[in-house]
Design a protein around this nucleic acid. Structure first.
Lengths: 229, 229
DNA sequence: TCCACACTTCGATTATAGTTGAAGTGTGCA
DNA sequence: TGCACACTTCAACTATAATCGAAGTGTGGA
């Protein structure tokens, strides 16, 4: 028999509907309790417990205990990146109710991609920054131009700090709903943090959709020409 | 129940040991018959047929019929890239025989990563090109410098043609055995094609290892300072 | 034209894994 | 101190999928 790595061992963790659902729910970057994740995945808490222990053991999820609560989160950005790249090649969800249709639209409009923005909003502001000459699209990443450096400094983003971080700076992250790239990396993260600080976006309570506030509507229009129509 | 994409649907194709073995065998970029793939995966031909039909249906593998033979190949470079990134996070294969140990060493030394070189050879020549100033390592890709352009032209590589191709040009491809990056994309592919033309490497008959010929030993030493010791 | 080969399909068996009800454990508050 | 809550573990059941022997189909060469 030929010699091959144990690809199936890790991948099978992802290839089960309930675990995949749990992991996708965790793509909002937040901590969630086991009971919440059970509810989101549509399974009983004891089933969720069974799956979560496997995901923790497989280093895809990390857990923090606080009293009787167990808080689960994706292990790291690498797991999130893998998940997003798998979402790109997966068929879209079947819509079986009006509520699901609404939720899908919210996710398509704006959502977190673990620690940065995705959806129409994420792709839209990325495209604006390219067309305005702030970013230059390369193969798998965005380069910040000189005018972009100034724009970001004015916007309250410290590029020097971001570049020193031990992680990808500004990679192009493929967006499963827009089928285009949005800005990822530490720069993408910092922009999302800034938007939250400014109160331009808020995270939805239980799904990873993000909604734009009234202040955000004005701000995105003024600074990022979004939505562009 | 929350709304999530059908990640499990595609991923479960990969998360089964026999199918994963088949796909990994196909990482040599070549066509293989169903009977060969059955043998490599250690299953009966009828089981291989069952799995291959699923992989074709899932667009991970393509098939060409010639008479009574069915020739299977990975569908495209995207599937190969996904597979390699999954290999990186998978545990290494257990060694149960001397033959398997030999095969693993051969794969670690030099192998194809679908359409470009990986292993010590792939990483080694990439590192040399960076240290010689021919390439510059960026976040997720390599930029060709001016001296690199001249070196590659002298070596018989037409960069203009490569850059026009509708695919990644020179992305940094992570290497599961070296835990470092080797050169991928159309440039990586073209270099491998060139080495084959020069007769510096030959592909092993049944695994995706590549061996360096005597001419290759001289050539890699002279042009790429490999092995570097 | 017949036989061998490559491969597929069928049906039955086997193996594996997900699920839940019930019971148990640890935490926290009244 | 006792009860409710969050969560885990256990055992049994259910569901799903992989496997192979046998049989069938299509191709090709003698």
């Amino acid at each position: 028999m030929s010699i091959n790595s144990n690809v199936a061992q890790v991948v099978s963790l992802l290839g089960e509907a309930s675990r995949a659902s749990i992991l996708t729910s965790l793509m909002d970057g937040r901590f969630h309790t086991a009971t919440e994740l059970a509810y989101m995945a549509g399974i009983k808490p004891q089933t969720a417990s069974f799956h979560l222990s496997k995901l923790v053991e497989g280093n895809l999820v990390k857990v923090e205990k606080q009293g009787r609560h167990r808080y689960f989160q994706l292990a790291n950005a690498e797991v999130a990146a893998l998940l997003e790249s798998l979402l790109v090649i997966s068929p879209p969800p079947e819509i079986r109710s009006l509520k699901q249709s609404t939720q899908l639209k919210l996710l398509q409009d704006a959502r977190t991609c673990y620690d940065h923005l995705a959806g129409k909003l994420g792709v839209g502001i990325t495209e604006f920054m390219v067309s305005a000459g702030y970013l230059e699209k390369e193969q798998k990443e965005f380069a910040v131009t000189r005018t972009g450096t100034r724009f970001l400094a004015d916007f309250g983003v410290d590029l020097d700090v971001l570049k020193k971080k031990r992680r990808s700076f500004s990679h192009a992250c493929i967006d499963w709903s827009e089928r285009n790239h949005h800005l990822g990396g530490s720069l993408g993260n910092e922009l999302m943090v800034r938007f939250l600080e400014l109160g331009w976006i808020v995270q939805a309570p239980s799904i990873r959709a993000v909604t734009i506030t009234d202040a955000g509507k004005k701000g995105f229009k003024q600074f990022f020409d979004y939505p562009n129509e």
